[in-house]
C-alpha cells in the first residue's frame, strides 16, 4: 500500500529515485526506530508520536543529510527525541528497584512475553541513560560498535566501555530479579 503511495509521486517535482530511496529507508528503519524508542523508555502511549517526530525531522532535513549516513541520522535523532520525551514525562524512576523477596520466577513465567517486556522495561529503567543508549542499540537493535559510536557521537572506546558497564549492570539487575523477583509490576507502567 505504501508502495503504491510512493509510486504516485512520479509527476511531482521530487526525483523518482529520491522518492524510492525515501520509501526504502522508511520501510527498512521504521520498526527499528519504534523499537529503539521503546527500549529507551518512551511511554507506550507516546511511541507512535515519537517515531513520527523522528521521521518528520528527517523529512525536513533530508537534503542536508550526508549520503550513506541516513540510518545513523535517523537513529541519532531517535536518541535525542527519546531523551526529550523522557524528560517531559517526569516519570519517577527509582535509583534502585525496591525488590521484595518473592517466589522465584520460573522460565515459564517469563515466557509470558508481556510480562517479560515489563520486566525488561523495568530493568532498562535502572540503567544510566548513556549506558542504556549503547546497550539497547547493541543488544536489541544489532548495531555494530563503530555504528553506535557514530550514532551516539562518542569515541569507539567510550562506546565499548559503556556497553561493558551496561552489560554488567544489566546482568546484575537480572540476577537480582532472578533471586528476589520483581517489584510489583504496574500494569499501566507500559
Amino acid at each position: 500500500m505504501l508502495d503504491r503511495l510512493f509510486d504516485a509521486d512520479v509527476a511531482l517535482p521530487a526525483s523518482a529515485l529520491g522518492a524510492l530511496e525515501l520509501h526504502q529507508l522508511f520501510k527498512s528503519t521504521y520498526d527499528g526506530i519504534w523499537r529503539l524508542l521503546r527500549g529507551l523508555g518512551v511511554p507506550t502511549d507516546r511511541l507512535d508520536d515519537a517515531a513520527q517526530q523522528v521521521f518528520l525531522v528527517y523529512a525536513e532535513r533530508h537534503a542536508d543529510v550526508v549520503r550513506g549516513s541516513e540510518r545513523a541520522f535517523l537513529f541519532g535523532t531517535a536518541l535525542r527525541v527519546a531523551h526529550v520525551v523522557r524528560r517531559g514525562t517526569h516519570r519517577e524512576v527509582p535509583v534502585e528497584i525496591d525488590y521484595a523477596p518473592s517466589e522465584q520466577p520460573s522460565v515459564d513465567e517469563l515466557t509470558d512475553q508481556k510480562r517479560a517486556r515489563q520486566v525488561l522495561d523495568r530493568i532498562l529503567d535502572q540503567l544510566d541513560p548513556e549506558l542504556r543508549d549503547v546497550f539497547v542499540l547493541y543488544e536489541l537493535e544489532g548495531f555494530t560498535m563503530p555504528e553506535i559510536a557514530g550514532i551516539v557521537e562518542v569515541p569507539l572506546g567510550t562506546a565499548a566501555s559503556r556497553l561493558r558497564r551496561g552489560r554488567e549492570r544489566f546482568s546484575a539487575l537480572v540476577r537480582r530479579y532472578s533471586t528476589f523477583g520483581p517489584p510489583s509490576l504496574q500494569e499501566d507502567a507500559r
Binding site: D9, A19, D31, R35, D48, A51, F55, A59, H62, L120
Partner: peptide, 26 residues
C-alpha cells in the same frame, strides 16, 4: 528478556500514517 524486547512491533496503522506524513513533508 531481550528476545521479548526484540519481538515488540509497532501498529500497522501508525506506521502507515507516519509513512504518509513522511512522504508529504519530504
Amino acid at each position: 528478556l531481550l528476545a521479548s524486547g526484540r519481538a515488540a512491533r509497532p501498529s500497522t496503522r501508525a506506521k502507515w500514517r507516519t509513512g504518509i506524513l513522511f512522504f508529504l513533508v519530504s
